[in-house]
């Protein structure tokens, strides 16, 4: 019958995972459960089509160290079971504004009160709204198992649509954001069929650091829902780095710089539309960082 486990310590959770994922007679797959906001819709969908679905769960919401935001030297650590509401409420530098804006657009408040950042990453949806802001922040994923701990860049942790580099006995413990300059600003823009409670057609996270002379010292641009994995636009970043942040830059955001994207045709939008929308969102995001009088060029 179904197993439901709710360990109170990370150590107990890891040993349970190790035992359950071992070889031989004791092997028994356990689904790690935190907010449940992705697990349930998946289950309901599979149930409706009489497909098998996971029934044995390891609930990690009672492990105190997995929830909350803290500093570790210059880095900021966000516990894997930290909710979107926790992130919105936290005092974080402007470089994290994009992550907060994403948190405010994930589901409704009821979802934000339960859904977790770690779950968003491990679920590895191409449209995961948490991922583009984290990629722009050069996030790393802290992973633990009874074999030890490791930390991998988020960009390599997510390997494809619903695929990650997490072994069956491993647990994501935290998302690690390395230090950022206090002057870094960030922005998240999401396009959906309506403004809230929708899966993104395309999303864009942009992190920008402007030098004292007005030029772009650093810029990271990530597009979500337009590839199997949210993707950094390295060529566009290189095009813009070192340039003065003014309206002429908008015209430099040309379609060719988006060729790295591989958007799908699906019920939400066509591939062509997604590619065009990604470019418009990037232009809007750039314009947002400029003086108010040039905002209209982004229309």
């Amino acid at each position: 019958m179904a197993i439901y486990l709710r360990p109170a310590s990370l150590k107990a959770a890891l040993s349970t995972l190790a035992q359950a994922s071992g070889k031989g007679r004791s092997a028994h797959p356990l689904t790690v459960l935190a907010g449940g906001t992705d697990i349930y819709p998946t289950r309901a969908g599979k149930q409706a089509w009489l497909e098998s679905f996971p029934r044995d769960f390891l609930d990690i919401t009672q492990i105190p160290q997995l929830r909350g935001i803290r500093r570790d030297g210059r880095a900021i650590l966000i516990g894997a079971a930290t909710t979107w509401t926790d992130i919105v409420a936290a005092r974080l530098p402007p470089a994290f504004d994009a992550l907060k804006q994403a948190a405010l657009q994930i589901g409704g408040l009821q979802i934000q009160n339960r859904g977790t950042l770690g779950g968003n990453i491990v679920n590895a949806s191409p449209a995961a709204d948490g991922v583009p802001p984290l990629l722009a922040l050069d996030a790393e994923v802290d992973i633990a198992s009874v074999r030890g701990e490791r930390s991998v860049p988020l960009a390599s942790f997510i390997r494809g649509n619903r695929q990650t580099g997490l072994a069956r006995d491993e647990l994501v413990v935290a998302i690690r954001l390395p230090g950022h300059r206090a002057s870094s600003r960030s922005l998240f823009l999401k396009l959906g069929a309506r403004s809230h409670l929708v899966i993104s057609i395309v999303s864009v996270a942009m992190l920008l650091d402007q030098g004292a002379d007005g030029t772009i010292a650093d810029i990271r641009i990530t597009v979500g829902a337009a590839s199997a994995v949210p993707t950094r636009l390295a060529a566009l970043e290189a095009e813009l780095r070192g340039e003065r942040l003014d309206a002429s830059l908008i015209e430099r955001v040309t379609p060719g710089l988006f060729s790295v994207l591989t958007p799908l045709d699906d019920v939400r939008a066509s591939s062509h539309y997604r590619r065009a929308a990604a470019r418009i969102l990037v232009r809007r995001a750039l314009a947002n960082f400029m003086e108010p009088q040039v905002e209209e060029v982004a229309a």
């Binding site: 906001t37 349930y40 819709p41 309901a44 409704g108 408040l109 009821q110 979802i111 339960r114």
Partner: peptide
Amino acid sequence: DQGQCGACTVLVDGRRINSCLTF
């Protein structure tokens, strides 16, 4: 029954959640 409509909203320790999405 999948967290999209909010008809199942209840308050847990004062916070609103979708009761269909949790054990």
